[in-house]
């Protein structure tokens, strides 16, 4: 069985962001695997372990630094990596990114494809579904449970209010993974060492990009602070006294 998992490298969301033109400044940021993709990688590795005879490829589009994130996926259990080298990846729109993935996957006959349900930076939730539509295969988004049994897949899709939809489909198919789908493993030291020897193929973006962007960012900015909110800083004990005073004045819960 052939499995593909698509991952993205994103900035640590706790970073101090600054804006440079129509995008955030990408220098001096810490980078990590998109959180949703950690669940996709884990699910892909679990299926691989369940099925046995299978080959799991991790795909990532981006500049040279994304190799670090790919190594984590390889250390988690992916067999091989495909890096589509693209310095402009961060600003490409979902349509362009999905087209590149679909172009790569088009002739590879993957049985299962996993993506995160969205990225933490753009959060469009479009790429995975686009890829499936372009490849003309079924897709289920936002899964929180995944069971594979002899080319039949049963999943639970998360809806609002904790309700889940029960869905099944055959292969090939694509799934976009929601947080909490599983417990992503931490790579062990021996697996990190093994990952260094795994194949990591570099391909050029120009060979995969056949469409133009469907949208462009014309401006990036920080939201206006609504104001009114009081900011308290200082010594914890003094802060506690001040907060208690405020809660007594503004609410009835301590009366």
């Amino acid at each position: 069985m052939k499995i593909l998992v698509c991952i993205k490298q994103v900035p640590d969301m706790e970073s101090k962001f600054t804006i440079d033109g129509t995008w955030y400044n990408t220098s001096d940021l810490a980078w990590r695997m998109n959180e949703y993709d950690e669940y996709s990688v884990e699910q892909a590795v679990q299926v691989k372990e369940q099925v046995g005879d299978s080959d799991l490829t991790v795909l990532c589009i981006g500049p040279d630094r994304v190799k670090e994130t790919m190594k984590k996926a390889l250390a988690m259990g992916c067999d091989r990596g495909v890096h589509i080298v693209d310095d402009k990846a961060a600003q490409r729109d979902p349509w362009e990114i999905a087209s590149m993935i679909a172009k790569f996957a088009g002739d590879k006959e993957f049985d299962l494809i996993f993506c995160g349900m969205q990225s933490q930076d753009r959060a469009s939730a479009q790429v995975g579904i686009y890829v499936a539509e372009m490849l003309c295969i079924p897709s289920v988004s936002t899964i929180v449970d995944f069971q594979y049994d002899d080319a039949n897949v049963t999943v639970k899709r998360e809806l609002e209010g904790g309700v889940k939809a029960l869905i099944s489909t055959g292969t090939p198919a694509l799934f976009t993974c929601q947080l909490g789908l599983n417990t992503p493993r931490y790579p062990t030291l021996p697996n990190i060492m093994k990952a260094k020897k795994k194949e990591l193929l570099s391909l050029q973006a120009d060979d995969f990009l056949e469409v133009t962007a469907a949208q462009e960012t014309t401006e990036m900015f920080f939201p206006e602070k609504k104001g009114g909110g009081l900011v308290l800083e200082g010594d914890p004990a003094e802060l506690a006294d001040r907060l208690i005073q405020i809660i007594k004045e503004k609410t009835t819960v301590m009366g």
């Binding site: 962001f17 129509t22 955030y24 133009t212 960012t217 401006e219 990036m220 920080f222 939201p223």
Partner: peptide, 15 residues
């Protein structure tokens, strides 16, 4: 929104 609502961007669709 961008990056967990830390920033925002204005988007112009083609067509």
């Amino acid at each position: 929104p961008v990056c967990n609502a830390k920033m925002r961007r204005t988007v112009k669709p083609t067509g």
